[in-house]
Design a protein around this nucleic acid. Structure first.
Length: 476
RNA sequence: UGAGGUGUAGCGCAGUUUGGUAGCGCGCUUGGUUAGGGACCAAGAGGUCGCGUGUUCAAGUCACGUCACCUCAACCA
């Protein structure tokens, strides 16, 4: 037990020092390292493998909903950025600019994309002439750069990986439908793959994307009760089509501006997974996106037959589609248990001479730390069932926690109490910016999304009859 | 940008008050014994003490300058 505590002490206390806990976990589990340029992160193989699994799940759904992948350039002429007034105002402070190339000063500065609406809009204007060209449904996987003042691995970095979907439609209705459809794709992936419950809904004017007509987001509750904006889907109306001249001849012969959308999720999702499921021992990864779903730890591996049996088991599980690793390193079993637990592997299999004699194996699950036995013959089925169960349990557990921590407030004091205790707070809002700012100043909480149902009667800040019910929270 | 803090082995740190041989733990290498929750023994490798200038017989330690990073605030889809 003393050893146990010694191990745990290597990671900061999750309850009392959550930011430090988070940093410890991402560095010690070798997900990332800090890059040489301030605010950048190096995503190591173990971290990148998580991203690849998320990519795979998202990409599958994008294809199913008719989208195609494409790629647009990293460098965007500054003049593109300035075409949409709100857009440039929103992004200008955080754009990195290339001023020199080929040993000379450039005639026009180039910005490193903070997002690609402008360059994609420029290309769409060339490609679209007729209603027959619509809808255009494209997505790109790429990196973007936003020069943030303070950064934290995965949650906010200067450069990050993401996907950005950009679509053009003939009508407002169709574009709006696309916006909501992709929001629901995100919600479904968060729920079924990341085991991460989210609140979805429209965001306020203050919180919306620069240049959008409406922004919808999904917000996830982190272990400390703060909210993480885990994905956004924007209805851009004709703002960008007018700025970039995306016009088409409609069936009636009239020249019309298209209606556009954009939507994206980033490597921030990985931060969300860590902060949703992690515990005092480190990472807890949902099986669907875990780089290693099961690890085999041989016991007394030098004894005859043990290692051979472990290799055979690994082969069988891999054959059955399990991402499985055999830890045949020289470390002691206890060391391996802790190491793989810290790395969040959902299922651990212990196999030693005693098990072989009994024709059994020992299964340990990461989420509850429960151990169980299974017969060696049915290993594939037992592991598959356990992985499913872990996936389910992680979601249900996180969902129960989130739901138990959504409270209502009638006054600013109640709201402050609520967020101080790590809750999301439902409260009325009259709709004016002054009241939204007042909440931020008073409680350091922002409006995350509009609630699905309007239940509040009075604005939490000014007491007037409320127009909306909003979920307020502190946010990452 | 405002306030505070830290730079010493791969990582975490002590040493700085009062100048005098460069230290500890972990990790790493080699060999051996072990093994069901971070094993043990033995031997070994690894350092321009962030950088610069100065004071001094002598600087990790004192002075001045400079750079980097961290925390809080501010900023932030």
């Amino acid at each position: 037990m003393a050893k146990e505590n010694e191990f745990v002490s290597q990671i900061a206390d999750i309850e009392t020092d959550f930011p430090q806990w988070y940093t410890d976990v991402v560095l010690k589990t070798k997900l990332v390292d800090y890059g040489p340029v301030r605010g950048t992160m190096v995503i190591r193989p173990y971290g990148y493998a998580i991203w690849e699994n998320i990519q795979r799940e998202l990409d599958k759904r994008f294809k199913e909903t008719g989208h195609e992948n494409a790629y647009f350039p990293l460098l965007i002429p500054m003049s593109f950025m300035t075409k949409e007034a709100e857009h440039v105002e929103g992004f200008a402070p955080e754009v990195a600019v290339v001023t020199h190339a080929g040993g000379e000063k450039l005639a026009e500065p180039l910005c490193i994309r903070p997002t690609s609406e402008t360059i994609i809009g420029t290309m769409y204007a060339k490609w679209i002439q007729s209603y027959r060209d619509l809808p255009v449904l494209m997505n790109q996987w790429c990196n973007v750069m936003r020069w943030e003042k303070t950064t934290r691995p995965f949650l906010r970095t200067s450069e990050f990986l993401w996907q950005e979907g950009h679509t053009v439609h003939a009508t407002e209705e169709e574009a709006m439908e696309e916006t909501m459809k992709m929001l629901s794709v995100y919600e479904e992936v968060a729920r079924t793959c990341l085991a991460m419950p989210v609140l979805t809904g429209r965001k306020t004017e203050k919180e919306k994307f620069a240049g959008a007509v409406a922004t919808y987001g999904m917000e996830a509750m982190m272990h400390d009760g703060k909210s993480l904006q885990a994905g956004t889907s924007h209805y851009l109306g004709q703002n960008f089509s007018k700025a970039f001249n995306i016009q088409f001849s409609d069936k009636d012969g009239a020249l019309k501006y298209g209606y556009t959308t954009s939507w994206g999720v980033s490597t921030r999702l990985i931060g969300g997974i860590i902060m949703t499921h992690g515990d005092q021992r480190g990472l807890v990864l949902p099986p669907v996106i875990a780089p290693v779903q099961a690890v085999i730890v041989p016991i007394a591996s030098k004894k005859p037959g043990v290692l051979e049996a472990c290799r055979a088991l690994k082969g069988r599980l891999a054959e059955a589609g399990v991402r499985v690793t055999l830890d045949d390193s020289d470390n002691s079993p206890g060391w391996k248990f802790n190491e793989w637990e810290m790395k969040g592997v959902p299922v651990r299999i212990e196999l030693g001479p005693r098990d072989l004699e009994a024709g059994k194996l020992l299964l340990a699950r990461r989420d509850t730390h429960e151990k169980s036995e299974a017969s060696l013959e049915c290993a594939e089925a037992a592991v598959a069932a356990l992985l499913d169960d872990v996936q389910q349990n992680l979601y249900l557990r996180a969902k129960a926690r989130m739901e138990s921590r959504i409270v209502s407030a009638e006054t600013l004091d109640e709201l402050l109490d609520g967020v101080n205790q790590g809750n999301f707070v439902r409260a009325g809002w009259c709709g004016c910016r002054a009241c939204e700012d007042k909440v931020k100043e008073f409680a350091q909480a922002t409006a995350r999304v509009f609630a699905k149902e309007d239940t509040a009667e009075r604005c939490v800040a000014c007491g007037k009859k409320s127009a909306h019910t909003v979920i307020f929270a502190r946010a990452y």
